[in-house]
Simulated scan of single mutants.
Amino acid sequence: MKKVLLPVVQPPIWGYQFFAFPLSIVLAHDKSLPWFYSNYIQVCYDKRSDPPIPFTFYIHDHTLNPWLHVERLQRGTMGIIKRNIVEFIRDCLDEGMYCNLNVDEFFIPEREVYRKSHLSHDILIHGYDLEEQTFQLMGFTDKHNFASTSVRFTDFEQAYHNIDVIDHQAVCDRIFLYKWNESGQYDFDLTLVQETLEDYLLSRNTSARFRMVASPWNHCDYGLKTYASLLHYFEQLLNGHTGFDVRHIHSLWEHKSLMTARIRYMQGLTQPLISSDDVLASAMELERLALNARNLMLKYYLHNTPQSLVRIMGYLEEIAAKEKLFMEKLLDHLSQNKVYSF
């Protein structure tokens, strides 16, 4: 019986699955690393009331990179072509195409809401097994990790169609098909890294760089300015004026962890861009502080200890002050390559 399993890896960004899914595909191939480390530098905080994605990396289009061929469909298109969704996805996988779409996780095993409550959530299907009659999919599990699990075809079909009767239709009608683009090319872009680092340091609106194709996101704070927004969130949480959301601190930790990895990558190039171990040490210190803050957020979740929030705010103030010095130091080192003057 036929089986297809397309390769995926655990990506370094997984707090938001719309980032994690494309990255889990392209980062299975080392040739994508120059593009990856040239991006995911800027962050933004959405200041609007109750935004779905308050704080995360800023990327103009999370599906757009040189290593993916992307096709975008709407759920309504499946009604027009009158294809059975299970057969359609199997045919896509046969052609090397991953499928990213929303389903009702009430029907998806190893999910926190499985057989308990209805929830629209995105998944990435990367394989199937005809003998077992299952799809293999990536996503958050009931163990709070990002992993590959399986679902029977019959349960998946129910999960797909039940989106029509739960309250998320307006934002869950998209279907992305991803295929690895072997002919993609991208060299590490030092100029882009320097420009985006400066955007971060000066809290500039990086979305304005894409105004030819989309209006700038003027509802967001950027870079170092996001620390004030994060502190305001934790003040509100401490005073009981907002709800718990671990994604803020998790995204902060992912950003610092990725910056450490980026420094190591630049040190390991054939012509190293950073020779000072002091820069790496500063990045690692920021990562350590962010991880401490993340651990405190989990402690607050388990024990509801207000003191944990107070300590998190102290960490945020410390990280903000140290990161400003780190960014200035990093840009100074990179300027020695005579590509950029700061």
Rank of each mutant, 00 (worst) to 15 (best):
P11Q: 02
G15M: 01
F19K: 05
H29N: 10
Y40A: 06
D50E: 12
H60G: 05
H60Y: 13
H62K: 14
M78R: 10
G79K: 14
R83W: 09
V103I: 09
V103K: 07
D104W: 06
F106I: 05
F107N: 06
P109A: 03
K116L: 13
L119W: 10
H121T: 04
G127V: 01
Y128W: 01
G139H: 06
S148P: 07
T149E: 13
R152V: 09
Q158W: 07
V171C: 13
L177I: 09
L177N: 05
G184D: 03
Y186W: 06
L190N: 08
L190T: 06
Y200P: 02
Y200E: 09
L201T: 02
L202A: 10
S203R: 04
N205E: 12
D221G: 08
Y227D: 06
L230C: 11
H232G: 10
E235Q: 12
Q236N: 13
F244Q: 05
H248C: 01
S251N: 14
H255M: 12
S257R: 07
A261Y: 01
Q271V: 12
Q271A: 10
Q271Y: 12
S275P: 00
L280T: 01
L280D: 00
M284P: 03
M284H: 04
E287N: 06
N295C: 12
Y301A: 11
V310D: 12
I312Y: 02
K324W: 05
K324R: 13
L330I: 04
Q336A: 13
Q336R: 12
F342K: 15
